[in-house]
């Protein structure tokens, strides 16, 4: 391609990704300010939810050294980014919309403490169902995997979502639905990711 520079090649994040991206998980304190899996503060608007799950490899074994990042809209359905020009929706100064989570080294469970996003306008003015954008890296993953989590209690919106409807194998759409449940008074969405095999999660080239 004329005068277009090739993107720098990806490489695996490796087993010690925590050192750089979450040093406390690696076992030491170095930065005064740390990124975390908690996206909210006490002023953030919206319904508090916990999103958690595990990532499984092709043998069904939990991946215990995985790192996930989430990127999502606020409760009104607007991203905290200048390219989001949905001006009829309010920005929430107390919500960046991004977080980073490491799986537990023993159980493999990862978790985000966040809010349920509103619906975002997609291409050609079509509304996308509420969703989280997830990015997954780990040892053995050569290039970060992109996927989305949709919400089990948004069935009507999910049925008309333009991205879910791009997946011609209807049976695979279900791999992107986080299941809502209550744990005490907490709302929990469980989202397990299968890297390979019969229940393989849908991954996107974005």
């Amino acid at each position: 391609m004329k005068d277009y520079l090739a993107e720098t090649a990806s490489q695996t994040a490796g087993p010690y990704v925590h050192i750089g991206l979450a040093p406390q998980a690696a076992g030491f304190n170095i930065f005064e300010k740390n990124f975390s899996h908690v996206l909210t503060n006490s002023h953030t608007q919206g319904e508090r939810i916990i999103v958690e799950g595990r990532v499984f490899d092709g043998s069904g074994t939990p991946v215990r050294d995985v790192l996930l990042e989430v990127w999502q809209a606020n409760a009104a359905g607007r991203y905290n980014h200048p390219a989001d020009q949905q001006s009829h929706k309010e920005l929430d100064e107390d919500f960046r919309g991004w977080g980073r989570s490491c799986s537990d080294f023993d159980s493999g469970v990862w978790r985000f403490d966040t809010i349920k996003p509103g619906a975002v306008t997609g291409r050609d003015g079509r509304t996308m169902a509420p969703h989280l954008n997830l990015w997954i890296v780990a040892r053995g993953i050569n290039i970060g995997l992109n996927t989305r989590m949709y919400f089990s209690d948004e069935q009507t919106a999910n049925e008309s979502d333009p991205v879910l409807n791009l997946i011609e194998w209807e049976v695979r759409r279900n791999t992107l639905i986080g299941k809502r449940s209550m744990r005490g008074d907490e709302v929990v969405y469980t989202f397990d990711v299968y890297l390979q095999g019969e229940r393989e999660t849908v991954f996107f080239d974005v």
Partner: peptide, 15 residues
């Protein structure tokens, strides 16, 4: 064991 067997599904970008 950590690589998907299905092709990635290509999206046109949205917000």
């Amino acid at each position: 064991l950590r690589s998907p067997r299905n092709a990635l599904i290509s999206l046109q970008n949205s917000l």
